[in-house]
């Protein structure tokens, strides 16, 4: 097993390299949002249903992940030094 030194800054930089999430609803907002109201109108029904289905699945995944993270069992890091939080 490789012994690696990871800092909080390393983790942050790693996460920042991930590309931003792009959902169909976000693209519709960016491209079709009129200047004088909050939400686009006149979008074909099939396109809207597709975007709603995608974003609903996304919010459900995010909700479940949040619940899972809130109930994580603590894992003792016996071989992984985290310098910022060393006791």
């Amino acid at each position: 097993m490789t012994r690696a030194l990871w800092t909080a800054e390393d983790l942050r930089e790693c996460l920042l390299t991930l590309p931003p999430l792009e959902l169909k609803g976000m693209a519709l907002l960016r491209e079709r949002r009129p200047a004088n109201c909050f939400f686009p109108t006149g979008i074909p029904r099939a396109t809207m249903v597709e975007a709603i289905t995608e974003i609903t699945a996304y919010t459900e995944r995010a909700r479940r992940m949040g619940e899972a993270l809130a109930n994580l069992t603590p894992i003792p890091l016996l071989t992984q030094p985290v310098l910022e939080y060393g006791l």
Binding site: P20, G25, M26, L29, R30, A51, I55
Partner: peptide, 12 residues
Amino acid sequence: PFLLLANAVAWL
């Protein structure tokens, strides 16, 4: 991206 996602969720 974060605000756009929040806006899309509120909409859809």
